[in-house]
Design a protein around this nucleic acid. Structure first.
Length: 577
RNA sequence: UGGGGAUUGGUGUAACGGUAGCACAGCAGACUCUGGAUCUGCUUGUCUAGGUUCGAAUCCUAGAUCCCCAGCCA
C-alpha cells in the first residue's frame, strides 16, 4: 500500500480544549496538561472509546503534555488480563503511546486503604453492617431523604478496628462495608454515605489474593487521578453527578494532610457526551451479550463495533481518528450517522488503496473471435489518485468472468452495462459487443458470447467511438478463487434498542449482516495478498485480507465498506420493470 | 417528583450581542476507461412565550422537551 500522507485534520476546538486553553492562560496547573484514558479491563474497546482516546491523547499532544493509560481494575469479578492486553493493543493501533505512564488502580490499593484509615480516624467514614438490600432501601428516593444507618455513629476506634478486620479477611463477602459519612439527605444520591469498600474474597488478576476488600470505583477514581497529577480528568456525562463526591474525597484527604507529595492541585473533571452511532449498540453489556450469545463470532467479528473488529474488517486507524475528530466534543447526547464513519474510511482508502478487479458473482463471458489458447497482458493503473502507485499487468484471454449484475438479457432503462447487441468496455482491455447467450434447461444464463474489437486494445477506440459502460472482468484461466465476505449493519434499525414492549433488541439483528460470496474470482495478483492488506475492488468497494481465516493461495476477503453506488440507488428507487 | 445536565436543518457541529456557516444525508446537473473519485447548484434550522437592546442563537424571565442519578458495577 502506498503511504500517501493523510492531511492531519486541524484539531477543531471544542469546549474542553477551550477549558484547557484557559487553564494554560491562567496558569491554573502551571502550564501542565496531564490527561488519562482510564478503561476497566472488562471488555474490548469499541469505537466510542476511540473518541475518548483521541480526545485525551490528542489534548496531551497538542499541549506538549502527556496522557496516561490507567486500568481501573477495582472489580476482580469482571476483569481479566485478556482485556488488558487487547486494550493496550488497540490504543497502540490507534497510534498513541503512553510511554512509561502505564498505571493500574490496583497499584494504589495500599494508598487508598491508608486514606480510608485516615478518613475513618477523622470520623468521616464508618463501617456499616447493613446488607446491600438494606442499604438500598434506606437510601431514600429521588424525593425522599435517606435514613441513617444504625452504625453511622459507631465510635472511631471501633470503626478502625472493624476496618482492619475487614481487610484481614475476618468477615464473609457482603457482611460489612466502609461508608463515607457525608449526608443522607443530600439531593445528590451519590453523597448519601456512599460505599467505599466492599468485601470480596476474590482473586484479582494483578494483586492475586492480597486483598479481600476492594475499593469502589468512586473511592478509587478521583484519587487515582490525583496521585498521577492528572490536571484534566475527562469523562462522560453520567459522571457529572459524581464530581462533588470525588472532590469531597480529595478535599478531605488534603485537609487531613494526606495529599500526595508533589501534587499541589486537584484534578479538574470535565464531562462530554459519549458517542452513539446509528445501527449500532455500544454498551459493554450488550456487546458481551452478542459475543456470549453467539450472535457474532467473537469480539473481533467484523460486524462488531469493537476496535479489533474494525481492524480485522479493514478500517484504518487514520480513518477512525479522522472520524473521532470530526464528530466533535460537546455535552449534547447525540447519535452520529454511521455513514460518517464509512465516509471517513472511503476518504482515506480512496487515496491509498491499490485498485484490483474482482468478480464476486461470476458469469462466463466468451469472446468468440479471440483465438483459443491465446492470452496477453494488459496494463492497469494501480491507483488513479496516486500516480506513484504505478501500473500492473493483468492477463486477458478468450474466456473471462464478469459480474452477473453486469449483464441483463432485457436491460432496464439507463442500463449502461452489457446486454444483447450492446457494446461495453472491459476495463483496461477491449470493447466487446454481446452477440448471443447460452442458457441451461432451467433457462438460466450460463454463458454470454461476444466479439471484441482488437483496435480498442487498452480500452481506447481509435475511431473515437464512445461506449456508455465500463465493466470489470477477470481471465477465467488465470483468476484466483476466493471467499469474499460482504458485511452490512449488524442491526436493521437505526436505533437497535427501539423495540416493542417486552421484546429484545436482538429482534433487530439484521439477518443479512453477512453475505458470503463463496466463489469469487479475483485477478491473479491477489493470490499472494498478505493478511490485513487492503484493496479497492473496482466498482465494488474496499476489501481487506482476513487475518484469521485466510489460507495460503486461498485468501478470504472482508468487505470493509462498499463504494457509493448510485446505480443501485436509482434501481431501488424506481424498480426497473 | 428532588438534584445534575442539555436543546441550532433529516443527522451532527460552528457562530462567544452585529450577514446563521460547515460536514454528512437528500435532490439536480457537469465530468469520467470505476454508475468510483472530482466539481457545480439546490432544499431544509436557532424548542416555546415574553422581555432587555439600534440589533439576540447568544443576555434576562417563565415554560416545554430530552438525558443522567435510588449497584456492595464502572
Amino acid at each position: 500500500m502506498s503511504s500517501a500522507p493523510l492531511n492531519p485534520a486541524p484539531p477543531a476546538s471544542d469546549f474542553i480544549r477551550e477549558i484547557v486553553a484557559q487553564d494554560n492562560a491562567s496558569g491554573k496547573f502551571a502550564g501542565r496538561v496531564i490527561t488519562r484514558f482510564p478503561p476497566e479491563p472488562n471488555g474490548y474497546l469499541h469505537i466510542g472509546h476511540a473518541k475518548s482516546i483521541c480526545l485525551n491523547f490528542g489534548l496531551a499532544q497538542e499541549n506538549a503534555g502527556r496522557c496516561h493509560l490507567r486500568f481501573d481494575d477495582t472489580n476482580p469479578a469482571k476483569e481479566d488480563q485478556e482485556y488488558v492486553d487487547s486494550i493496550m493493543e488497540d490504543v497502540r493501533w490507534l497510534g498513541f503511546d503512553w510511554g512509561e505512564h502505564l498505571y493500574y488502580a490496583s497499584d494504589y490499593f495500599q494508598r487508598l486503604y491508608d486514606w480510608a484509615v485516615l478518613l475513618t480516624g477523622a470520623g468521616l467514614a464508618y463501617v456499616c453492617d447493613l446488607s446491600a438490600d438494606q442499604i438500598s432501601r434506606m437510601r431514600g428516593s429521588l424525593t425522599q431523604p435517606g435514613t441513617p444507618s444504625p452504625h453511622r455513629d459507631r465510635p472511631v476506634q471501633e470503626n478502625l478496628d472493624l476496618l482492619e478486620r475487614m481487610r484481614n479477611g475476618e468477615f464473609p463477602d457482603g457482611a460489612r462495608t466502609l461508608r463515607a459519612k457525608i449526608d443522607m439527605a443530600s439531593p445528590n444520591l451519590n453523597l448519601r454515605d456512599p460505599v467505599m469498600y466492599r468485601i470480596a474474597h476474590a482473586e484479582h488478576h494483578r494483586t492475586g489474593s492480597q486483598w479481600c476488600i476492594y475499593p469502589m470505583y468512586d473511592w478509587a477514581h478521583g484519587q487515582s487521578d490525583w496521585i498521577e497529577g492528572v490536571t484534566h480528568s475527562i469523562c462522560t456525562l453520567e459522571f457529572e453527578n459524581h464530581r462533588p463526591l470525588y472532590n469531597w474525597f480529595v478535599d478531605n484527604i488534603a485537609k487531613l494532610g494526606g495529599a500526595p507529595a508533589n501534587v499541589s492541585y486537584r484534578p479538574q473533571q470535565s464531562e462530554f457526551a459519549r458517542l452513539n452511532l446509528t445501527y449500532t449498540v455500544l454498551s459493554k453489556r450488550r456487546l458481551l451479550e452478542l459475543v456470549k450469545g453467539g450472535h457474532v463470532n467473537g469480539w473481533d467479528d467484523p460486524r462488531m463495533p469493537t476496535l479489533s473488529a474494525f481492524r480485522r474488517r479493514g478500517y484504518t486507524p487514520e480513518a477512525i481518528g479522522q472520524f473521532a475528530r470530526s464528530v466533535g466534543v460537546t455535552k449534547f447526547d447525540s447519535v452520529i450517522d454511521v455513514s460518517r464513519l464509512e465516509n471517513a474510511l472511503r476518504d482515506d482508502m480512496n487515496r491509498r488503496a491499490p485498485r484490483r478487479m474482482g468478480v464476486l458473482d461470476p458469469l462466463k463471458l466468451v469472446i468468440d473471435n479471440y483465438p483459443e489458447g491465446q492470452s496477453e497482458e494488459l496494463d492497469a493503473i494501480n491507483n488513479p489518485e496516486d500516480p506513484a502507485a504505478g501500473t500492473r499487468k493483468i492477463p486477458f484471454s478468450r474466456v473471462l468472468y464478469i459480474e452477473q449484475d453486469d449483464f441483463r438479457e432485457i436491460p432496464p432503462p439507463k442500463y449502461h452495462r452489457l446486454a444483447p447487441g450492446q457494446e461495453v468496455r472491459l476495463r483496461y482491455a477491449f470493447f466487446v459487443r454481446c452477440t448471443t447467450i447460452v442458457k441451461d434447461d432451467q433457462g438460466v444464463i450460463t454463458e454470454v458470447h461476444c466479439t471484441y474489437d482488437p483496435a480498442t486494445r487498452g480500452g481506447d477506440s481509435p475511431d473515437g467511438r464512445k461506449v456508455k459502460g465500463t465493466i470489470h472482468w477477470v481471465s477465467a484461466a488465470h483468476a484466483v478463487q476466493a471467499e469474499v465476505r460482504l458485511y452490512d449493519h449488524l442491526f436493521n434499525k437505526q436505533d437497535p434498542n427501539d423495540v416493542p414492549e417486552g421484546q429484545s433488541y436482538l429482534a433487530n439483528l439484521n439477518p443479512h449482516s453477512l453475505v458470503v460470496a463463496a466463489d469469487a474470482r479475483l485477478e491473479p495478483s491477489l493470490k499472494e495478498a498478505a493478511a490485513g492488506e487492503r484493496f479497492q475492488f473496482e466498482r465494488h468497494g474496499y476489501f481487506c485480507v482476513d487475518s484469521r481465516d485466510s489460507r495460503p493461495l486461498r485468501p478470504v476477503f472482508n468487505r470493509t465498506v462498499s463504494l457509493k453506488d448510485t446505480w443501485s440507488k436509482m434501481e431501488k428507487k424506481k424498480p426497473a420493470s
